[in-house]
Computed example of a mutant assay.
Amino acid sequence: MQNPNKLSTNGLGRYGEEVAARRLTEGGLCILERNWRCAEGELDIVALDGDTLAVCEVKTRSERGFQQPSEAIDQTKADRLRHLAERWLAERWPVHFSRLVLAAERAEGSAPPDEAAVGGPAPPPPGGVRIDLVAVVNPVKGAAAVEHLRGAV
């Protein structure tokens, strides 16, 4: 892999998202989707944290940058993230919910439900939805520092 300290801004962002996804997975989250896009914008990572849906905004900065990752989310960005999370839930949650139900039933050894039961309206995640910030600071030397701020937005 190329030295992340010499990456372009887009390259640094992609590097940060890779580091963030790895850290979230190591922390027990199940990543459902990465880089989901619609006409209004993009969600970096959508994951399950237990029974809570975590919409994760990844902000990556160079150690030499003037702004901390957490300073990059203003009220406008927070409102956009909330809107995108609602849209993702409406469009994508039923698909993921159906897969989760089928996987759980297979693990329990019970017969899969008929398609009508799975294809019905998906209930919201039992633990609700939260918007997290994953701040990645890429140092000049050594491993990136990653901070997962749950419910930051």
Score class of each variant (00 low, 15 high):
residue 51 D to P: 15
residue 85 A to L: 02
residue 102 L to D: 09
residue 64 R to P: 01
residue 34 R to G: 06
residue 146 V to S: 07
residue 54 A to L: 03
residue 114 D to A: 11
residue 110 S to N: 13
residue 62 S to K: 14
residue 69 P to R: 05
residue 118 V to T: 02
residue 59 K to M: 04
residue 114 D to H: 04
residue 90 A to W: 02
residue 102 L to M: 06
residue 49 D to G: 14
residue 132 D to I: 05
residue 41 G to Q: 02
residue 101 V to D: 09
residue 67 Q to K: 09
residue 50 G to H: 01
residue 57 E to H: 09
residue 121 P to S: 13
residue 117 A to V: 00
residue 77 K to D: 07
residue 50 G to N: 12
residue 130 R to L: 14
residue 113 P to K: 09
residue 93 W to R: 04
residue 118 V to Y: 04
residue 26 E to N: 13
residue 127 G to R: 14
residue 130 R to H: 14
residue 93 W to V: 12
residue 52 T to M: 05
residue 123 P to K: 14
residue 107 A to L: 15
residue 67 Q to S: 06
residue 114 D to R: 02
residue 84 L to Q: 02
residue 26 E to C: 09
residue 52 T to Q: 15
residue 24 L to T: 01
residue 88 W to E: 03
residue 51 D to S: 15
residue 40 E to T: 06
residue 80 R to F: 09
residue 84 L to F: 00
residue 57 E to D: 10
residue 132 D to Q: 06
residue 107 A to T: 06
residue 77 K to I: 11
residue 128 G to W: 10
residue 85 A to K: 08
residue 82 R to L: 04
residue 90 A to H: 06
residue 131 I to C: 11
residue 68 Q to K: 12
residue 33 E to K: 13
residue 112 P to W: 11
residue 88 W to A: 05
residue 37 R to F: 07
residue 37 R to Q: 15
residue 32 L to K: 07
residue 47 A to K: 05
residue 30 C to Q: 11
residue 90 A to C: 10
residue 126 P to T: 06
residue 82 R to M: 05
residue 29 L to A: 12
residue 128 G to Y: 08
residue 127 G to F: 10
residue 99 R to D: 04
residue 146 V to W: 00
residue 69 P to L: 06
residue 58 V to T: 03
residue 51 D to I: 07
residue 116 A to E: 02
residue 72 A to H: 02
residue 46 V to R: 08
residue 23 R to M: 03
residue 91 E to G: 05
residue 56 C to S: 08
residue 113 P to H: 08
residue 70 S to T: 04
residue 71 E to N: 11
residue 78 A to L: 12
residue 54 A to Y: 04
residue 73 I to G: 00
residue 141 K to G: 05
residue 69 P to H: 01
residue 77 K to C: 02
residue 76 T to D: 14
residue 90 A to R: 11
residue 35 N to W: 07
residue 32 L to I: 09
residue 35 N to F: 04
residue 97 F to D: 00
residue 67 Q to M: 03
residue 122 A to T: 14
residue 39 A to S: 01
residue 66 F to N: 04
residue 108 E to A: 15
residue 112 P to T: 00
residue 103 A to G: 13
residue 25 T to I: 07
residue 74 D to K: 12
residue 74 D to I: 10
residue 133 L to Q: 12
residue 41 G to Y: 06
residue 28 G to D: 07
residue 63 E to R: 00
residue 143 A to Q: 01
residue 137 V to D: 08
residue 119 G to T: 07
residue 121 P to M: 14
residue 46 V to A: 05
residue 86 E to L: 06
residue 65 G to D: 12
residue 105 E to R: 15
